[in-house]
Amino acid sequence: MKFNYTALVLAFLIGVLIFISPPFVMSLDISAFIRIPMLCMITLFFLLHVVKKKKFVYFYLPFISFFVIEVFYWKMTGNSLEGASYFLTYVILIISVLLSIHRIKNCKILIVNFYFWLILITSVLCIISFLAFNLNLLPYSYRPIGGDEGYKYFYFPILGYINAKNFDSTVIGRACGYLFEPSYMGWFLTANFFLISKFLKNKKKIFFVQLIVFMGALSTMSTMMWLVFFIVFGIATLYLILRWAGMQEKMICMILFVIFFLGFMLIPKDKIIESLGPSSSDDREERVGVSFLLIASASPLDLLLGRSPGYLEKKFDKGESNQIIKLLVENGIISTVLVLIFVIYFTYKSKWFMIANLLFLNSVVILFTPLFMFNILICKWLNEIEEGSNEVSMK
């Protein structure tokens, strides 16, 4: 297969942008003077391809205009616009890529293949790292990242970082590769476990790769990883039972949605998390409490439009670990609803991947990162491939 140079350069730049942006550790060492121009350059390139398209002008431009109005409101209320500029740029980028990627021959296929190999290689490295550290097979060195207030990790070249954590009387190393925390790697591998079948068509290869990704996810020993696998497998089992009973698809989805919503609201999540071993749930609950106080004391406009991205970190020197609550506080109710609709719209045809992402958004802040954004776009593209609108890239 021949690739044009434009597609190769774009795919390469997108890959670089992913690696030098959060949640990758490299983002701590790369200057904003490199990351921001690259982000703006890629965004501008795709935007120029769609700025005159009717679908962009009549459907997406009103959404972008609303977000611009939000930015002006945040400026008027005296809040910082550093995070707001990233938010607005990412919104424009994802819409522009969505509308223009098909016009750049083979670019979509390159990005999809890049993600497949990133998922597979990352899984293998996590498995090796987990075994090597916990069985004392390799000499890991203590290497904190992010300064004194950062992460206290162990490091081995190529395999990346390990977070050593006490479980009762045992210390277990949790693989996080080159991402900030095991929870981020847990999200990336767990969510994409449910997408692997879309990348491949050979059933034997699907099982083998899924097994590798599953073992890689387990190597992170992330508390949320256990919970998400348990919930999604439980819902999938119930789905198969209802299908076997002859129930219609729409009715099944409605029943599962009600069960999922009620379960999420009523199940004692704290007790379940505690039963899985030590976690950061206490610290997370404290942050959620602060966020709820801000929501309760917010003015009507602050509730609707938010207080600006990054507000919690600047105001309290401690961020919010729940992405949805963070959105409500910083971006407001309207933006939260719009963003969640976009996430669901991109992923609803891969329901287990969608559910896994929505669950993880309650514990990791990954929404406005290139890694997450292109992941949900890839989900949409893979569904298009499955429906026969494009050639399948991997057999």
Rank of each mutant, 00 (worst) to 15 (best):
L359C: 08
S280H: 05
K395Q: 11
I295E: 07
F63P: 01
G289P: 08
Y155E: 08
E286G: 00
T6R: 14
V124W: 09
L137E: 03
M41E: 06
V50D: 07
T122R: 00
E249W: 00
L340T: 03
F193I: 04
N166I: 05
F257G: 14
F24S: 02
G160A: 12
L13K: 11
N106E: 11
T223P: 00
Y161V: 02
G234N: 08
K2I: 08
S279Y: 01
E320K: 01
Y155I: 10
G146M: 09
L137G: 10
D283A: 12
Y86C: 05
D29S: 15
P62G: 12
C40M: 11
E249A: 01
A298Y: 11
N331S: 09
M38F: 14
T6H: 12
K52P: 07
W244V: 14
Y86S: 08
E82Y: 13
K395T: 06
L159G: 02
V339E: 01
P278E: 03
K250Q: 02
F193R: 04
S393K: 04
A7K: 09
G173M: 13
F260L: 10
A217V: 05
I295V: 15
Y161I: 03
I378P: 06
I324P: 03
L312D: 03
K395P: 13
G332I: 04
V290L: 13
S100R: 06
R103S: 10
L131Y: 11
V343T: 08
F72P: 02
S169Q: 13
I111L: 15
P139Q: 13
K105G: 10
G246F: 07
I325P: 01
I104P: 11
K165P: 00
N390V: 05
S279H: 05
D283Y: 10
K318C: 13
Y153F: 11
L340Q: 03
Q323V: 00
G146N: 12
I255K: 14
V9F: 14
L120D: 06
L242Y: 11
V97Q: 08
P309R: 00
D283G: 15
